[in-house]
C-alpha cells in the first residue's frame, strides 16, 4: 500500500513536506477536536511522566530530609549492590519462572473456557454460567488465600484430612517449595479465568454467522468449525492480549504473592515486588529498592518490545 503511494508521488521529499504542513494546517483548522485530547495528554504528563523523574533516586543515596535535590549522587552503586547480591539471581529466576508458568498454564484457560461457553446453545444457561465464572474475580486475594489456608492446613485442613482418609500421607502445601508454584497458578486460574473470557466472547460474537452456515452446508463438524472459523477469527485478539499480558510480565500480583509468602517458601516465592516492599518500605532503603524496581521495569519493557516484534513478524498487528 505505502509503496504505491511513494511510486505515485513524483518527488517524495516535497510530498512529505507538504504532508507535514498539511498536518499543521489541519491541526489549526480542527483545533477544537485536538483540544479535546488535551486532558488525556495532561493526565499522562502529570501523573505518569513527571513522577518518573523520581527514578533519579535510584542513582542517589536518597535521604528523606535532604530531598531529591540534596541527596548525594552515588551513580550505579545500588545497581552494583543488586547484581552482586546472591539473592538477585534467585529473585530474577523466581519472577521469570512464575511469569512463564502464568503464561503457559493460565493464558490458554480463558480462551478454552470462552470457546466452550460459545458453544452452549441455551442462552439462559450460558448467561448463568458466565455470571458464575465472573464472581471469583470480585473476591480479594486476602479472602482467596485465607480460604486456601483453611483448606490446605496440616491441622484439620479438609484436603489433608481427605488424603488421610484415602490412606495417603499429608502434604504440607503451605510451607513447601514444590507446591508454591502450582498453588499460585491454580489460584490465579480460579480467580481470573472467568473474567478473562469477556473479551474473547465479545470477539466471538462479532464473527459473521454466515461463515458457520456455509461450513455447515459443507459438512463441517463442530470441532472443525471451532478450528477453522472461531479460532482464526479471534486470533488477532489473542495476540493483542498476549502482548498486553507480557507487558504486565512482572505484575505477578504483589498482594497475592505477599500473602502466600512465608519463611519456608521464600526461596521460590520472593519476587521483585515483594523484595522492593520489604527492602524499601519495611526497612526504609528507598534508593536501593527504587533501583530494584527500575531494573524490573527495564526487563518488562524489553519483553514487551520483543513480543511486539514477534507478533509483527508473524503478520499480526502488534500494539504500536
Amino acid at each position: 500500500m505505502s509503496e504505491t503511494v511513494i511510486k505515485a508521488a513524483p518527488n517524495p521529499e516535497t510530498k512529505k513536506k507538504s504532508q507535514e504542513s498539511g498536518l499543521l494546517k489541519r491541526m489549526i483548522k480542527n483545533r477544537s477536536i485536538y483540544f479535546m485530547i488535551l486532558p488525556g495528554l495532561l493526565y499522562f504528563v502529570i501523573f505518569k511522566y513527571i513522577p518518573m523523574s523520581g527514578l533519579v533516586i535510584a542513582f542517589q543515596n536518597y535521604q528523606p530530609y535532604l530531598g531529591i535535590m540534596g541527596s548525594p549522587w552515588v551513580g550505579l552503586e545500588h545497581f552494583q549492590r543488586l547484581f552482586s547480591e546472591p539473592l538477585f539471581f534467585n529473585i530474577l529466576s523466581n519472577t521469570l519462572i512464575l511469569f512463564f508458568i502464568n503464561l503457559l498454564f493460565y493464558f490458554p484457560v480463558p480462551i478454552i473456557l470462552a470457546l466452550m461457553l460459545n458453544e452452549v446453545r441455551i442462552n439462559f444457561f450460558k448467561r448463568f454460567v458466565q455470571t458464575l465464572v465472573y464472581v471469583p474475580h470480585f473476591m480479594s486475594w486476602v479472602i482467596i488465600v485465607s480460604i486456601t489456608f483453611v483448606m490446605l492446613s496440616m491441622d484439620r485442613g479438609i484436603i489433608n484430612e481427605l488424603f488421610v482418609m484415602m490412606g495417603f500421607e499429608k502434604i504440607n502445601f503451605l510451607m513447601s517449595t514444590e507446591w508454591f508454584r502450582p498453588m499460585y497458578v491454580l489460584q490465579v486460574i480460579w480467580r481470573e479465568a472467568g473474567w478473562g473470557t469477556i473479551i474473547y466472547l465479545a470477539a466471538m460474537a462479532a464473527i459473521d454467522p454466515g461463515l458457520y452456515e456455509a461450513s455447515r452446508i459443507d459438512g463441517a463438524s463442530r470441532m472443525r468449525q471451532i478450528w477453522h472459523i472461531t479460532l482464526p477469527s479471534i486470533r488477532s485478539v489473542i495476540v493483542v492480549l498476549l502482548i498486553l499480558k507480557i507487558g504486565d510480565v512482572l505484575e505477578l500480583g504483589f498482594e497475592h504473592i505477599y500473602l502466600l509468602l512465608n519463611s519456608m517458601n521464600r526461596e521460590v516465592a520472593e519476587i521483585f515486588d515483594t523484595y522492593v516492599y520489604t527492602a524499601g518500605l519495611k526497612q526504609g532503603q528507598f534508593s536501593f529498592s527504587t533501583a530494584v524496581g527500575f531494573f524490573k521495569s527495564v526487563i518488562g519493557l524489553i519483553l514487551v518490545m520483543l513480543a511486539n516484534w514477534l507478533s509483527k513478524k508473524a503478520g499480526e498487528e502488534g500494539i504500536y
Binding site: F149, D155, N172, L174, M175, N262, M264
Partner: peptide, 8 residues
C-alpha cells in the same frame, strides 16, 4: 505435640 502449621 505442637500445632503442625505453626510457621504460618
Amino acid at each position: 505435640l505442637i500445632n503442625k502449621d505453626f510457621p504460618v
